[in-house]
């Protein structure tokens, strides 16, 4: 399954917004996930990603599904750097 983050907006910035996005994703999208099905996280058309948003959403997702999350590559500088910061901790 593919998670298109642009559906949460082009600017993904605050922790409360990420928490909200995570709650919706878990309730309505991931509920359809089959066991061992991969989750592809797609950053296409996301312009701004902060480490706070990434920490709250991506880290939680990875924690919940440690073996299933695939972060699709992105050319966006804020996406790349924020993911780098989140993976560092």
């Amino acid at each position: 399954m593919k998670l298109e983050l642009k559906k949460f907006g082009a600017t993904l910035s605050s922790r409360p917004a990420a928490k909200e996005a995570w709650a919706v994703t878990r309730a309505y999208i991931l509920s359809d996930k089959k066991p061992s099905e991969k989750i592809e996280v797609d950053f296409t058309d996301v312009q701004v990603l902060t480490p706070s948003w990434a920490d709250e959403f991506i880290s939680t997702l990875k924690q919940e599904y440690p073996n299933d999350v695939i972060l699709l590559p992105s050319d966006n500088a804020s996406v790349k750097m924020s993911l780098e910061f989140v993976s560092e901790r």
Binding site: S13, S14, R15, V48, L49, T50, P51, A77, S78, S82
Partner: peptide, 16 residues
């Protein structure tokens, strides 16, 4: 473009 996205992220981080 890329600098603009990074700057926007910086503003978001500090303000939030």
């Amino acid at each position: 473009e890329q600098l603009s996205f990074l700057l926007s992220a910086v503003v978001g981080e500090i303000g939030n």
